[in-house]
């Protein structure tokens, strides 16, 4: 086990100690971070989204900003603006909250499409452009956006084309009884968070990302992936199939997932493990129902050898 991977796994365990009973979701969140993709968490308030994100930022030693999206939020509010400094008598760029390594974009569907676009553009490009001037965002750059599915009045659900920019979509769900009991019996979560020590520094994280991206992928696995993509397109299960970008996302996520296991190559189970969360928000059923059963059907129908 390389030193950086050991630290990374340790960081994951620390987060598991704070966010109780959500091992899979924690691992997926770390997978997304490792694959250099962004995360969309869709769930009810109060299930621990913020705790998860804050813990993640803390243990990974990332600078953290939280942006609460509202309907009157403007692009300049997140990106930053050029202001005139009277003393120096020149215009300077004052960076917005986006200039941090880990962003929690809370309730992103409450902002207007215009503001959403500004965020998503930054997501894709890893830089912002203000007044014709381009500013690079810090590395690593990781956005976790949350959506609240319960209150749909006065919201602007993210269009599909923008959903595609998130590597994966997670649902946290209610904790299991045992974990909830521990939560209730335990101390203050805030206090716990403040006590967390970073397990990684930025260069460790970047190195982990590089290692994961270099993991070996054999031809048979690519065959399998291509067959999955093909079935999603011509199987008639979904309105439209997975895009090539989705294919790349699946591969990156599978690599990160496999790297966390410390194996030297990507196995089919790695691909299957990330398939639901990576493909879930990119596939829409024909009748608008939940896509999960159909995705399972898709996975089951493609033979693996």
């Amino acid at each position: 086990m390389t030193g950086s991977r050991k630290n990374f796994v340790e960081a994951m365990q620390v987060v598991n100690g704070v966010v109780l009973g959500k091992k899979l979701q924690v691992r997926l969140a770390f997978t997304a971070l490792l694959a250099g993709g962004h995360l969309l968490i869709e769930d009810l308030p109060g299930v621990g989204k913020t705790i998860l994100v804050q813990a993640l930022a803390q243990v990974c030693g990332l600078s953290f900003r939280r942006i609460q999206f509202t309907s009157d939020l403007l692009p300049a509010d997140i990106v930053g603006a050029v202001v005139f400094e009277r003393q120096k008598e020149l215009f300077t760029f004052r960076p917005g909250p986006l200039f941090a390594q880990l962003i929690l974009a809370d309730e992103v569907n409450r902002a207007t499409p215009r503001t959403q676009s500004a965020l998503l553009e930054a997501l894709e490009e890893h830089r912002v452009t203000v007044d014709g001037q381009t500013y690079d965002l810090p590395e690593p750059f990781f956005v976790i956006a949350t959506q609240n599915p319960a209150y749909q009045i006065g919201t602007y659900p993210l269009p599909e084309s923008q959903l595609d920019r998130f590597l994966m979509r997670l649902e946290l769900g209610y904790p299991e009884a045992e974990a909830e009991r521990e939560l209730l019996a335990g101390g203050d979560r805030r206090q716990l968070l403040d006590d967390l020590k970073p397990c990684l520094n930025n260069s460790d994280l970047l190195q982990c990302q590089r290692q994961a991206a270099a993991l070996h992928v054999a031809d048979p696995l690519l065959d399998y992936l291509q067959e999955l993509l093909k079935r999603s397109r011509d199987g008639g299960l979904f309105q439209r199939g997975l895009s090539p970008r989705a294919g790349l996302a699946l591969l990156a996520a599978a690599r990160a997932w496999a790297w966390l296991d410390g194996v030297a190559f990507v196995r089919p189970e790695d691909l299957q493990a990330v398939f639901f969360v990576v493909a879930g928000h990119r596939l829409e059923t024909v009748d608008g129902s939940d896509s999960a059963p159909l995705i399972k059907q898709l996975l089951d129908s493609v033979p693996l050898s």
């Binding site: 196995r267 089919p268 189970e269 299957q272 089951d300 129908s301 493609v302 033979p303 693996l304």
Partner: peptide
């Protein structure tokens, strides 16, 4: 099963 991984 058709899509079962060797590990599973």
């Amino acid at each position: 099963k058709l899509s079962e991984t060797p590990t599973a």
